[in-house]
Every structure is written in structure tokens, then in C-alpha cells.
């Protein structure tokens, strides 16, 4: 359980980090919080030749509201996110999900950007980013580009980031007026990977019917899963048990690639996805503001 040898470089700025990534290509890996990468290195499932540590880049650790969206620096620790007043003001969903990431000692190190770039389908924040229509800012030596969360997660631990790119910031649009949100998950033990988790946003129209809903799940497939069929099913309905049940049915139909392992079978995860969808929607709808 010791990593293979590697060369270590502590980058002091984004410019230095992307320059190192350009120089070393696929031999290099970025070290953010290290709570996923280092276990993989300890088990020698990952053997980077060069480790580019971006922990010294303090300019990438921030949570701030500006120009109608919430901006989160990629090196923001999950422990900082859950306590950031701008994040608390943004949505219940964001804070509830951040509190579900691992344990306190994990969250002291784990970062928002690291979790997204690692693209583990069990990561709560990936589902949150889909539900909140996040935009990711990717920086490389050649310049920067912005990718929508919907186009980012490509497969198990796979993203649309190109070689040499560094995720530097996350932008979340503010929720529409008269919206509520929630994150609900079920795990065998507090802080463990969830068997299923649901991020929900509900927006009501002036007449009290559902104007818009957004639903995304973690732990039930090879990537975090946005379920647009359930969102369509909810539009125009009156908020309540009947609407939530129709969304849950659509979610269960959409969960076709749930993993089966010693923690839970695929059919149990699909069942949980439905139950948690109803709970998340009801909780979100109870929080309209």
C-alpha cells in the first residue's frame, strides 16, 4: 500500500500548473485534495510519473456570488463549501450534498474541483452540478474554455477534459424565484458512498403548478444521471404526492445501468432511486423562496 515513485512539483499558480501539464502530457496527474487519487496511488491503480500539486494555489479557493451566479474555485475544500455564506444563500441542495461527502477529516482535504474532475459516479457533487446546470471553466496553456456539466461527464471516471487542461472554476446560475431544492441520499454508514442519491430543484408558477423541475442522481450508473423524462413529467402538475410518484416512476425507468455489488443489488438501488426522488422533491417543494 505504498505509491510507486513519482516526481513531485508544487505549482504556485494556475499558469505554472498548466505549463507543467503541457510539458508532461499524460504522464502527469493533478493533485488536489488527494482523497480519491492518493488511495488509487497507494493501491497502484494510478502510477503518475509526475504529480502536479495545486494545493499551494490559494487563489483557487473561494466561494462568491457575482453577476447572478455563484462562483466556486476548484480548490475550495468541501468543509469550506458547507460553511460558506454565499453557498448557504445559493441553495439547500449544495450544502446538503457537501455535507454528504465523506467524513469530516475527508472534507478538510477534499475539493469541489477534484471531485468533479475525478468524475466518480458516486460523487454527490457531480449530480448537484447536473441539477444546477453548472458551467466548468477549463484552463490550459493554450487558453480557457467553458463546458456545461451536461457535456462534461462522459463515462465512469471519464470527462470531456482534454490532456493539459485544469478545472479552475465552477459557475452555478442562481435558482429562479419561487424555487426550492434538496439533496437526499442513502448510505449504509454515515459518510460512505451512497447506494443512491438525488438532487432536486422545484420551481412553481404563479398559479401554484410546477413550472420547472430538475432531477439528477448519483451512484446509480456509470455517470451521474440527469433524468429529463422525470422533469418533463412534472411540468404543469400540481405539487404533491401524485406528481412526485410520477417522477419516481420515470426515474426508475431511466435507471438502467445501476451497479450491483455487496452493498446493494441493482434492483435495490433502482428502488431507492424512486423512493429518494419522492423524498427529495417533497423536501424541495417545502422550501420555496
Amino acid at each position: 500500500m505504498k505509491p510507486a515513485p513519482f516526481r513531485y512539483v508544487a505549482a504556485q499558480s494556475v499558469e505554472e500548473a498548466v505549463s507543467l501539464l503541457a510539458e508532461h502530457g499524460d504522464e502527469a496527474r493533478v493533485l488536489a485534495g488527494g482523497q480519491s487519487l492518493v488511495p488509487l496511488m497507494n493501491m497502484r491503480l494510478a502510477r503518475p510519473a509526475v504529480l502536479v500539486d495545486i494545493n499551494p494555489v490559494e487563489a483557487l479557493a473561494y466561494v462568491q456570488a457575482n453577476n447572478g451566479h455563484l462562483a466556486i474555485g476548484a480548490m475550495t475544500r468541501d468543509a469550506a463549501l458547507e460553511r460558506a455564506s454565499a453557498a448557504v444563500a445559493h441553495s439547500n441542495l449544495l450544502i446538503e450534498a457537501a455535507r454528504c461527502v465523506g467524513h469530516p477529516a475527508i472534507r478538510n482535504r477534499s475539493t469541489v474541483g477534484g471531485s468533479i474532475a475525478h468524475a466518480d459516479p458516486a460523487a454527490e457533487l457531480s449530480a448537484v452540478m447536473l441539477a444546477l446546470d453548472a458551467q466548468f471553466v477549463l484552463q490550459s496553456k493554450a487558453g480557457s474554455r467553458t463546458v456545461a456539466a451536461a457535456d462534461f461527464f462522459q463515462g465512469y471516471l471519464q470527462t470531456s477534459m482534454a490532456e493539459g487542461e485544469l478545472l479552475t472554476a465552477i459557475q452555478l446560475p442562481q435558482l429562479a424565484p419561487n424555487s426550492g431544492s434538496a439533496f437526499v441520499e442513502y448510505a449504509r454508514r454515515e459518510g460512505d458512498y451512497a447506494l443512491a442519491g438525488v438532487a432536486a430543484v422545484v420551481t412553481l408558477a404563479a398559479n401554484g403548478s410546477i413550472a420547472d423541475a430538475r432531477l439528477a442522481l448519483c451512484s446509480v450508473g456509470p455517470t451521474a444521471l440527469r433524468v429529463s423524462s422525470a422533469e418533463v413529467a412534472l411540468r404543469g402538475q400540481q405539487p404533491g404526492a401524485e406528481a412526485w410518484a410520477s417522477a419516481a416512476a420515470a426515474v426508475k425507468a431511466a435507471v438502467t445501468e445501476a451497479p450491483s455489488d455487496i452493498h446493494g443489488s441493482a434492483s435495490y438501488r433502482r428502488h431507492l432511486a424512486g423512493v429518494l426522488t419522492e423524498r427529495a422533491l417533497a423536501l424541495a417543494a417545502s422550501r420555496l423562496k
Binding site: 500500500m1 488527494g34 482523497q35 468543509a79 482535504r109
Partner: peptide, 22 residues
């Protein structure tokens, strides 16, 4: 030695961390 058990928890600048993951 992969961050699951917490036995190696120490404080770095006053914050708890897994010493096996740093």
C-alpha cells in the same frame, strides 16, 4: 492505508486529516 478507517488521523494546521492520504 487508503482513507477508510481513520486510525491514522492527525491534525495539520489544526484540521483533522488522514495521514495515509497526504
Amino acid at each position: 492505508e487508503h482513507g477508510s478507517c481513520g486510525a491514522c488521523t492527525v491534525l495539520v494546521d489544526g484540521q483533522s486529516v488522514r495521514a495515509c492520504l497526504m
